[in-house]
Every structure is written in C-alpha cells, then in structure tokens.
Design a protein around this nucleic acid. Structure first.
Lengths: 207, 207
DNA sequence: TGGTGCATGTGAACACCATCCACATTGGTG
DNA sequence: CACCAATGTGGATGGTGTTCACATGCACCA
C-alpha cells in the first residue's frame, strides 16, 4: 500500500480523484477540469471513466463531500454554546447554523461554489427522486435546528411550515452576495456585520 | 439597411451578437458558446473579438441587458397598485419588488442564471471600481423601494442601513432555491406560496 | 472623382476540453 | 495455475476560446 504509485493499478483512484479535485477547487478553481484532476492523480484522462459516468458525476461526488465538510464546520462552530434557557439556546443554535453556513462560504469560496452543483446542471433529470431536501446535509442541519426551536417553544408550531425556505433563502443568498455579489472582497468587519444582520432579520421574520 | 445580410460588413454585429446570445440563453442554455453565437449571427468566430475583448466581456454585456429586462418586468408588475395610505403603499411596493425578482427567475431561468455573471468570474479584478451596488439595476430598484418605506414611515430610519442586504439575500436566495435548489420543478402553487412567505418574512424581519 | 486608411470580417491555426474506443495490464478466484 | 473481470492506456473525434496574418469595403480627404 505504501509504494503504490508505480503500479499499473492505482489502488483507490476514485477517492484520489475526489481528493485532487477538492484541492484544485480550493486553490485554483479555474483549473478544475477532468483532465487536470487525472493529471494530478498521475493517471490518464480516460481512467476517470472507470469510476464516474462523466464529468458531472465527478462534480456530484465533489458536491457531496463538500456538503459534509460544510456541516462539520457548522457543527464545530455551534458546539461551544453555554447553556441557557431552552428557547434562547435553540435560537442561538439556529443563528449559529446560519452564520456557520455563511462563514464557510467566505472561508472556502471555491468549495462553496461547487457545494450544490450536483443539483444544478447535468444531473437534473435522473436524480429527481433522490434529492429531497433532507438529503442535502446543510439543509438537514437547518431543519433540525428549526424543529428544536419549536420543541423549545422559541417558534410557534403554526409558523414552522415553510420556515426552512425563508431561512435557507436568506442565508444562502447572503453567502452568494459575499462570494459573487456586490459584497465580494468587502472588509471582514463589514462582512461580519452584514451576515449577523441578515441572520437576525430572518430569524425575527419567521417567528 | 434592409439587405445587409449579404454584405461583408454586418452593420451592427455587436447588437446582433447580444440578441442571438439572449435567444440561446433563453431556449437552450447549454449551447451558449461564443462560437454558437457567431454561427447564428452568420459570422466567423473571430469576428466577435472586434466587439468584445473575450467571452466574459460578451457575458457581461448579456448580464447588463438581462438586468434591464428584469427591472422592466419588475416595474410592470408593481405598476398596478391601487392607492392606499403611504406606509402601506410603500410596503406593497417593496413586496412587489421582491416577488417580481423571484417571478423573473422562475419565468426566465436561463436569463436569471446569467444576470449576475459579469460580477462572477472572469472580470472580477478590473471592474472592481465600477460595480457598486447602485449600478446593478435590480438592486437599485430595491434601494429605491426601501428609501420609499423610510420616507412613508413604514421603516424606522435607524433600521434602514443594511436592510438592502437582508432583502436582497432573502429574495435572491429564494430565486436560487427555485431555479437550482430543492424547489426546482415544484408545482407553481407551492412556488408561489413559498415566495410570498419568504418575502413577507424578510419584510417583517427588517422592520 | 479617385485614392487611401481604418474599422471590421475571414480562415486557419493553437491549445485545451470531455468523451469514446480498442487494447494492455493486473489482482483475485476457480 | 489459468483465466476473467476490473482497471488503466493511447489515440481519435468533435467541441471550445483565442490569436494571427490577411481580406474587404466604408468614409473621408485630396
């Protein structure tokens, strides 16, 4: 396993391709091509097709991996909440989910850009059935936080339905604003302030 | 001017290229390439470079055109407001701006996708100076609506600063949700309801 | 009127890309 | 040990953006 680089067979090319693609996406997104990925993995372009139906399948795997990393960071951020009364704590968690989402987009714009690619272009038709909201990990995180709010009495039950769309819209839109939009490259202080205002406004609005 | 199609010189190739690109973007976005655009304009690929520095410059011109059409539709939608007291009327206008934005995204997904491309990829560095928020027409529309709200007493002056980011985030994020995200292809009734909930929530939240 | 300069369009080339094919190599299984 | 299925290769095809030397013809000036 140690000296696998010289052997004709790679060992675990699929994982290696995803790893290389992640690296490229983070550092020089413009260079993210199937050929470049295989090049860095030390393998011929066609080899990728033994593991992915086509380019968009690779991007889908990439998106899934990124979504999981996103959730990890969101959780790491939310973990250190000092105890408070349940309602307040649930709201703080909801706030943390939103801010964590936005932070991830700012810290890893290359990854953020690809995080929802699977649901975007090529694979639109076939996956149809398998892409319910609950299966998009960051979205699932939001759903859980909202349910918590209801359980803790911080959100009236009759306001629960549809609240996830308001929250996701505001938070995702804010992230886009900062990665692609007018706030791209704004000073971190401004960015922080805007993010907090957006998250607080939408949490106020859904209640 | 009438029989210009046979002449070596085109007449107004720049406009023709934008027109063709708009058509392609609307009907078969996947086919939107510089070569396809020139092909439809009956001209060689290189001809485009007499009018646009590169592909991303074409996309930028396209984006600008789309943004203007977006504003036109948003205005057409907001135009028929029956008079009411100023505060209520200002809020309705704000609501109309948001819903109009979302409607445009749903009705013209191909265009919506490109509307902010100019601020997205290639041209990021050089335009830096020229892309202040006020110069993005749909965003300017929002700013105006918010100022109206303050003037009409529907929004406290101390809540005005930053409100545009909350609104744009929610509305743009909602549009993305419907074009690329989990709500893509959802029944129109659901889409309508979600859009209204999102817009109403954020308007509640900013006040 | 005739000539010329400059903007505009052409054709061919380059480098890159995704994708497919027949073929080579191999690790594991009978 | 032999063979098979899985995996990787090299090369070809047709697409892309971009550049270059060259062709064309409109507008203006002598």
């Amino acid at each position: 396993m140690s000296e696998r680089s010289r052997s004709y067979h790679h060992g675990d090319l699929r994982a290696a391709l995803v790893t290389e693609a992640l690296e490229i996406a983070r550092t020089e997104p413009a260079a993210l091509s199937l050929r470049e990925v295989t090049r860095r993995a030390g393998v011929s372009p066609a080899a990728a097709y033994r593991h992915f139906r086509d380019r968009s399948a690779l991007m889908g795997a990439l998106a899934t991996e990124i979504q999981h990393r996103m959730v990890s960071r969101m959780r790491a951020r939310t973990a250190d909440l000092e105890p408070a009364d349940p309602a307040r704590e649930a709201l703080l968690r909801l706030r943390g989910v939103g801010l964590g989402y936005i932070d991830f987009a700012i810290e890893e714009p290359g990854w953020f850009e690809l995080a929802f690619f699977g649901s975007a272009e090529g694979a639109a038709v076939e996956e149809e059935a398998g892409s319910s909201p609950e299966q998009v990990p960051p979205f699932a995180e939001l759903l859980a936080a909202l349910d918590d709010c209801v359980a803790a009495g911080a959100l009236p039950a009759e306001r629960r339905a549809g609240a996830e769309f308001s929250c996701w819209s505001a938070v995702h839109g804010c992230a886009e604003l900062m990665v692609h939009g007018p706030l791209r490259g704004a000073p971190p202080a401004v960015v922080r302030e805007v993010a907090q205002r957006v998250v607080d406004d939408i949490i106020t609005g859904i209640r």
